[in-house]
Structures are given as structure tokens and as C-alpha cells.
């Protein structure tokens, strides 16, 4: 009897593997394979015309943080690199915070609509996904540039005397990323709020909690898995963002993604680009581990 059961379970497991084989194959070829190549390249020497020479070197990894002085060959901290890292982290954290601040009321609004209307609101949230990211980013460009919609309108109302310079600043990048990643924050938040038992609000008020206390002590604590998921979904692509800082930040306000691209393009330093890519991956993974651990600490003893 037990034997038959074991055999059935083994068969089920085999079928499971078989079913996921296409996905696993794709994952191996498209993700792990290239990653291995990138990892190998990061330990090679840059070639003359891009490309790599098969000669082992730590230079790319050292080059992440340090530059070699062209005159005496001593190592110094690479200020430009640090600025780019710092800007990337800063903008990504800000993007995550702003999408949360905007996304939470939005998700709450949708989750508290009658079920028949919810689908419509969720549909509106997903509409931006229908258009190519590049086109949407250029649309933002059109709105915020000096002669764009926003400035034209503000000049017309007389609120400002001369156009505000937003385009090609960090603010422009921030606006663009907030817009692009907002749905990724709203959807997991909605899923979490949708599961939230609204009767707990009354229980909170009944037990002398003010509105603010109910939000902080009850709602935010219970929908925390949604906050964690949304933050991860926004923070990670923000950190590696390429199109948005490129189009809205101009050439100057680079983020890590643009910096990596630069190494593979004009910079003609593939190993440095490869090392930067791997470093980004490691940073994201570590940040994620810390974040998830901190965010789920309250639920650990359960």
C-alpha cells in the first residue's frame, strides 16, 4: 500500500520536473549561461577595439572603486564611480519611497471599491504596460522639457515667470522612474490590502486607537508582505535602470546601468563592464537579503 503511494509520489515528482523542463532549459541558456560568460570576462584584459584578450587580470575588479593615476600609476578612489553608485542607490531608494507614498493610497482606493469596479481600476493601472518603455519615457520628456506641456501650462497660468529646468536633472530621472515603476508597487499592495479584513479597522477604533494608530499599528503591519514585495519589485529594476536615466537624465546624470553600457560601448572596457554587472548583482542580492530579513522579523516567531 505504502509502496504504491511512494511510487505514485515519485511519478508525480518526475512529471513535475518534466513539466518545468522548458522553463529550466530557457533559464539555463538565457540567464545562467550569459552570466557565466560575464563572470569570466570580468577577469580578462580589455582588448584594443572592445572585445577581450584572454589574459587573466584583477584590473576590472580593482577598477570598480579605484583609478590608476596616469602619471605615477598609484591607485586612488574613483570619485566619478562612487558618485554614480551613490546616485543610483539614492534615486532607487527615493523611487521606492515615492511609489509607496503614491501607490499605497491608490491600492487602498482600488481595494475598497465594490468588486465589480475593481477590475476596471486595475485595468487602468496596467494600461502603461501596453506601450513600449522608450516611448513612454519620451512622452515624459515631452511633458517636462523647457517648452513642454508642464512649463507651457505653468507659464500660461502665471505661476512661474520662466520655464523650470527639470529635464536632464536627477528630478527628471526620479519622475520618470516613479511613473514607470508605480504599477509594480500598486499591484502587490493591492493584493495585500484586498486580503486585509476591513473589520479589523473597527476593532482598532473600538479599542481607542486613533486613525493614525490604526494605520501604523494594524494596517501597515498586516499588509507588510505586500509592502515588501512592492519595494523589491521597484527597487531592483530602479537600481539597474537604463532607458529612463538615459533619456531623461541626459548623458551626465548616469546611473549604474548607463555606466555599465558605457564600458561596453565607447569605453571599450568589457571586463570593467562585466565586473560592474556582477557587482551590481551581488549588491542587489545582499540588500535584498537584509531587507527581507528586517521586514519579516516581526512575523518570524509565529
Amino acid at each position: 500500500m505504502a509502496l504504491t503511494e511512494d511510487r505514485a509520489r515519485a511519478a508525480a515528482a518526475r512529471t513535475g520536473w518534466l513539466l518545468s523542463a522548458p522553463a529550466l532549459t530557457l533559464l539555463f541558456i538565457a540567464a545562467i549561461g550569459p552570466l557565466a560568460i560575464v563572470l569570466v570576462y570580468s577577469f580578462l584584459t580589455p582588448g584594443q577595439y572592445g572585445n577581450v584578450e584572454w589574459q587573466f587580470s584583477w584590473d576590472a575588479w580593482i577598477g570598480i572603486l579605484f583609478t590608476r593615476d596616469i602619471f605615477d600609476g598609484t591607485l586612488g578612489l574613483a570619485d566619478a564611480h562612487l558618485t554614480i553608485f551613490w546616485r543610483s542607490v539614492q534615486l532607487s531608494v527615493l523611487t521606492t519611497l515615492i511609489t509607496f507614498a503614491v501607490g499605497f493610497p491608490t491600492a487602498w482606493f482600488i481595494a475598497t471599491r465594490p468588486p465589480s469596479e475593481r477590475a476596471f481600476w486595475l485595468f487602468l493601472i496596467t494600461i502603461p504596460f501596453w506601450t513600449n518603455l522608450l516611448i513612454r519615457t519620451f512622452a515624459i520628456n515631452e511633458v517636462i522639457r523647457n517648452e513642454g506641456l508642464l512649463n507651457t501650462f505653468l507659464l500660461w497660468t502665471g505661476l512661474i515667470a520662466e520655464p523650470m529646468r527639470i529635464l536632464y536633472t536627477d528630478t527628471a530621472v526620479l519622475i520618470g522612474m516613479t511613473y514607470v515603476y508605480l504599477p509594480l508597487m500598486v499591484l502587490p499592495l493591492f493584493a495585500a490590502i484586498d486580503r486585509f479584513d476591513m473589520r479589523l479597522l473597527e476593532a482598532g477604533y473600538d479599542l481607542y486607537a486613533s486613525r493614525w494608530q490604526v494605520l501604523r499599528r494594524v494596517i501597515l503591519r498586516i499588509v507588510r508582505p505586500g509592502i515588501v514585495a512592492g519595494s523589491i519589485l521597484v527597487f531592483i529594476p530602479s537600481l539597474g535602470a537604463y532607458v529612463t536615466p538615459r533619456v531623461l537624465g541626459g548623458g551626465k546624470n548616469m546611473m549604474i546601468g548607463n555606466f555599465i553600457e558605457l564600458q561596453f560601448g565607447q569605453g571599450r572596457n568589457w571586463p570593467l563592464g562585466a565586473a560592474l554587472s556582477i557587482a551590481l548583482l551581488v549588491i542587489v542580492t545582499i540588500a535584498l537579503l537584509f531587507y527581507v530579513r528586517a521586514a519579516t522579523k516581526g512575523n518570524a516567531h509565529g
Binding site: R199, E202, Y205, D206, Y208, A209, S210, I222, G298, N299
Partner: peptide
């Protein structure tokens, strides 16, 4: 007066205990 200012407490039909 809002509920949080009333010295009155409720036992809810669904209990509404805080799961966290």
C-alpha cells in the same frame, strides 16, 4: 464622539482579532 473616544468596547461577531 468617534468610537475611540467612547468608553465602550465591542465583541465582534467575527471576533476581529489582530492576526499579527
Amino acid at each position: 464622539d468617534p468610537p475611540n473616544r467612547r468608553p465602550v468596547n465591542t465583541v465582534f461577531q467575527s471576533y476581529a482579532l489582530f492576526p499579527h
